[in-house]
Computed example of a mutant assay.
Amino acid sequence: MTQSSAELPDEPDIFRISPLIRITLLSLYAALTTPLPFLSEATKSPIPANWLWVGIGAGAIVLFAALSERVITDDREIQVTYPKWVPKFVRQGWQLPWADVKALKPRSTGQGGLVYYFVSHQGQGYLLPMRVAGFARLVRTVQAKTGIDTTDVKPLSQPWMYLILLTFTLILFAIDAWTIWTATTLAS
Rank of each mutant, 00 (worst) to 15 (best):
A183C: 10
W160G: 01
G147C: 04
R131K: 11
A177I: 13
L156C: 04
Y162T: 08
M130W: 06
L165W: 07
K154S: 07
I180Y: 07
A136H: 06
T184Q: 15
F173R: 06
A144G: 11
F135M: 11
V139D: 01
K145V: 05
L163F: 04
K145G: 01
F173P: 01
D176P: 05
R140T: 13
T169P: 03
W181E: 08
L166R: 05
D176Q: 05
G147L: 03
A183L: 14
A177C: 07
T146L: 06
T184Y: 06
L165G: 02
R140S: 15
P155S: 11
F168R: 01
W178I: 15
W160F: 09
W181H: 11
I148V: 12
V142I: 14
W178M: 13
T141N: 02
T182Y: 10
I180V: 15
R137P: 00
I164D: 06
A133E: 15
V142S: 00
T167K: 06
K154D: 11
T141D: 04
R137I: 09
A177F: 06
F135T: 12
S157E: 12
W181V: 13
T182H: 10
Y162W: 15
L166N: 04
R140K: 12
I171R: 03
R131L: 14
D152E: 15
I175T: 07
Q143D: 10
A183T: 10
W178H: 05
I164E: 05
I180C: 09
L172V: 12
T182M: 14
K154E: 15
V142D: 00
Q158N: 08
S157K: 08
D176K: 10
P159K: 01
T141V: 14
T141I: 14
S157T: 07
L166I: 11
W178T: 13
L138M: 13
Q143W: 01
F173E: 08
L170R: 04
A133S: 14
L156G: 06
T182C: 06
L166P: 01
T150R: 03
Y162I: 11
K154I: 10
L172N: 08
K145M: 07
A136P: 00
T184C: 09
I164N: 01
D152V: 11
Y162G: 01
A174H: 02
L163D: 02
A133L: 15
P159W: 03
I171E: 11
G147F: 02
V142A: 00
A136W: 02
G134L: 12
L170H: 01
A174M: 12
I175D: 06
A136I: 09
L170A: 15
D152A: 14
G134C: 12
V153M: 02
L138D: 03
T150C: 14
M130V: 09
T150Y: 03
F135R: 06
A136V: 13
D152C: 02
F173T: 10
I164G: 03
A144Y: 02
A133K: 13
I171S: 09
K145I: 07
F135C: 07
W160T: 08
K154P: 00
L156H: 07
D152R: 05
A174F: 09
K145T: 03
T146K: 03
M130L: 14
T146A: 05
I180L: 08
T151D: 13
A177T: 14
A136L: 09
Q143H: 08
P159E: 01
Q158W: 12
D149E: 05
